[in-house]
Simulated scan of single mutants.
Amino acid sequence: MLRHDGLAGIHRRGFPSLWQNRERAITPAEREAAREAFERTIRRFRELAEESPAGS
């Protein structure tokens, strides 16, 4: 079953989200800036998806 977590996109239940996997490789001091960049990127991908023709 797929679900949308509102931030990292769609993932299978029980598996870590994309951000949770990415966060492990980032030092604590860099996580806030990295999280903001990650969220900006996800928002942009969603914008591009909304602008794309259906079925593309």
Rank of each mutant, 00 (worst) to 15 (best):
I26P: 03
A49T: 12
G6A: 02
E51S: 14
R46T: 12
R44G: 12
A54F: 02
M1C: 04
F45P: 00
A49F: 13
R43T: 12
R22N: 07
H11A: 15
E30I: 02
L18I: 06
E51D: 07
R24M: 07
A54S: 05
R3A: 14
T27M: 15
P53E: 11
E47R: 12
Q20W: 13
L18M: 04
E30F: 09
F38A: 00
T27F: 11
N21K: 09
E47I: 08
R24P: 04
N21F: 07
P53R: 08
R13K: 12
T27C: 11
L2C: 12
D5F: 08
R12T: 10
R44F: 04
R35K: 13
R3H: 15
R22G: 05
R44W: 10
A8E: 02
A33V: 06
A34G: 00
Q20L: 14
S52R: 12
P16L: 13
R3V: 12
D5E: 00
N21E: 06
A54E: 06
I10A: 10
E50S: 14
G6E: 00
P28N: 00
G6I: 01
L18P: 02
H11R: 14
E23F: 15
R43W: 12
R13L: 13
E23G: 15
F38S: 04
F38C: 04
E50T: 10
R13A: 15
G9Q: 01
R40T: 05
A29W: 04
N21D: 03
L2V: 06
W19P: 09
S56G: 01
R46Q: 12
E30W: 05
A25Y: 02
Q20A: 15
R46D: 03
A25T: 03
P16T: 08
N21P: 01
L7N: 04
A37T: 07
I42T: 04
L18K: 10
L2K: 09
L48S: 05
Q20T: 15
E50Q: 12
A37G: 11
E30C: 06
E39W: 11
R35N: 06
